[in-house]
Design a binder for these strands. Structure first.
Lengths: 340, 340
DNA sequence: CTGAAAGCGCTAACAG
DNA sequence: CTGTTAGCGCTTTCAG
């Protein structure tokens, strides 16, 4: 049992050719049902297992799909991955997952490794840092399907899966305005990433639309780490015009803000109304419950998987890049309640 | 550029043999530094990329490590995975991640696929359902390193990475007892899984130790889904002897319980003291903040990665199975505060 | 230090 | 319906 059986062993044992064995094992149409059964039986008896190394080499494909994400340990990302895994696994593909840790250099290395590993397709959500996209051209040049999701970059012939971040940002801000906020602070991530940039644009547009002044200082860039909450609090407590609304592009950071603000004596939503982004589980746990934008991660994963499988299966013309926009939803909870 | 260069192309171009090219590319000792540099230069110029398919076939190894987890989208699991990925990636390995979705059948399929993909090692955290472990013998027979973490199974020569669940269960329960609880309910997962079983045992031992009666009904088995919180509340509100302590083997479910209990009019911790397990982010967000057992997921991932790399590198004797026990920690917060 | 040549195990075109 | 045969591209003995 420690010795592995090859199709040659089976062929010899059954007195047929290796080709026949191969064909039997691969559901080839033109093979007699009788010999196929003989082969299958013998394969089972000897504990034969296909050697993918050889098969991959011969076919020049690996049945694996690569994924690069900023980090695995975020509720949103792991939910997306769960959806991707489910879809591609059902189709018989394996997922090689790697994380860039928000570093452009690591993203480049990951891309190179995945390329060399011979992934049949690549799914990417960009690192915050990334400014140069050369490491992806290797894939497009070799016609390896490449898809961006969430943190996307517009590359010729690469499908993207996103939500309408600008609209979502506008809706979130407008909601606060409708609740009576006049001086809203926006806390966002690196504006190089379109997700954050677009939400910021939506925020600005909502302000304009309602004739509120959108001074440059009304956005704070954050890395969303717990420590960084201090600079936000600092900004709020020293602002000349008192901040009465807070739109944070990330739920868990919004939660940190709420906790810190409450500790400082601010009442949510009486003094400051807060809205987050993502609809992470924490948003329903914090008190007051956090209003937010629902970002359907699992669905995004499923669609990313389906889309890439379509490209692999050739059922979609690879030249016709597509953009899938998933519906988001404004979720109103206590943290932005009007109270008069 | 669309055409790929092979070592033969390089060999021809440089007037050397493919063997020389291969050796140059692989840091082989006995190769003149001069020809090595010539080869490296030509490789860079032509955009040569190694073909892992061929290399894998020849070497009979893939430089990939397989992982099977119950699900990706849990805070704990994605944190562990993040640690694993970090370690093995630094060592030049790729991670193929798959999820069993708690189904034994899916776990078996995943194991088979990963075996056939030729992973060099396998890391597993078991599905709740799994009762039969035959799908793993394929690996041990072929001497492919196999490691279990968190939800483990004791298999000859397979290292395991765990915390001392029994002790943790005992400490959690004892903490509640010390806070004055007399009638503690334990909510756990499938007792087939040692993690839950051992925590339950620890709970029972704490009761015995303190002379409290441990009637069978003092444990409720749950799947930890939000819906299931009802049966727990039901049990508590109809219990003849009033429940004054709740030890839940899972933080997010503990949080659901707190929310539901509060809604029902129970005061936490005055009426019922609660302790969870894992130290998920939610435990610090809920009000009152949740006492819990810290389960260092990232560290577990890092150690799992290191351990398996050790086995792969041969730096550890594969026959000497080891068991790594990571330290947990009791974290006391408001939800279990004594109040008199 | 370098070259020749034999695999690694599977697939598929081409014959029959 | 089945067999022959030539790769897929890299690694590695064995010679030189």
């Amino acid at each position: 049992m420690a010795k592995k059986t090859t199709i040659y062993d089976l062929a010899k044992k059954l007195g047929v050719s290796p080709a026949t064995v191969s064909r039997s094992l691969n559901e080839h149409p033109s093979i007699s049902i009788k010999t196929k059964e003989r082969v299958l039986k013998a394969a089972k008896e000897t504990g034969y297992r296909i050697n993918k190394f050889a098969s991959n080499l011969s076919l020049q494909k690996s049945n694996t799909i690569g994924v690069i994400v900023p980090r695995l340990n975020s509720d949103f990302m792991s939910t997306v991955l769960s959806g991707i895994e489910k879809m591609v696994n059902e189709a018989g593909y394996n997922l090689i997952i790697s994380q860039s840790l928000e570093l452009e250099a690591k993203e480049k290395i990951n891309a190179k490794t995945l390329f060399e590993s011979g992934v049949d397709a690549l799914l990417v959500s960009l690192a915050n840092e990334t400014e140069d996209y050369d490491h992806f051209t290797t894939f497009t040049e070799r016609k390896i399907p490449l898809l961006f999701f969430d943190r996307v970059f517009d590359m010729p012939n690469c499908p993207t899966i996103i939500i309408d971040n600008q609209l979502a940002g506008l809706e979130a801000t407008e909601h606060l305005i409708n609740q009576g906020c006049q001086n809203i602070l926006h806390v966002s991530g690196n504006l190089k990433r379109s997700v954050y940039n677009l939400r910021y644009k939506g925020y600005r547009r909502a302000l304009e639309k309602h004739g509120l002044k959108g001074c440059e200082n009304l956005v704070q860039i954050s890395n969303f780490k717990p420590e960084s909450v201090q600079s936000v609090i600092q900004y709020i407590s020293t602002s000349s015009a008192p901040i009465d609304g807070l739109f944070v592009s990330n739920d868990s950071f919004a939660v940190y803000c709420i906790k810190a603000l409450t500790k400082k004596g601010y009442r949510i939503p009486e003094d400051i109304k807060v809205i987050g982004f993502n609809n992470d589980p924490v948003s329903e746990v914090i008190n007051p419950e956090l209003s937010t934008i629902e970002y359907p991660g699992y669905k995004m994963g499923v669609l990313a998987g389906q889309s890439i499988l379509g490209h692999l299966g050739g059922s979609i013309d690879i030249e016709s890049a597509d953009q899938i926009i998933i519906k988001h939803k404004l979720i109103i909870r206590e943290s932005s309640q009007k109270c008069n």
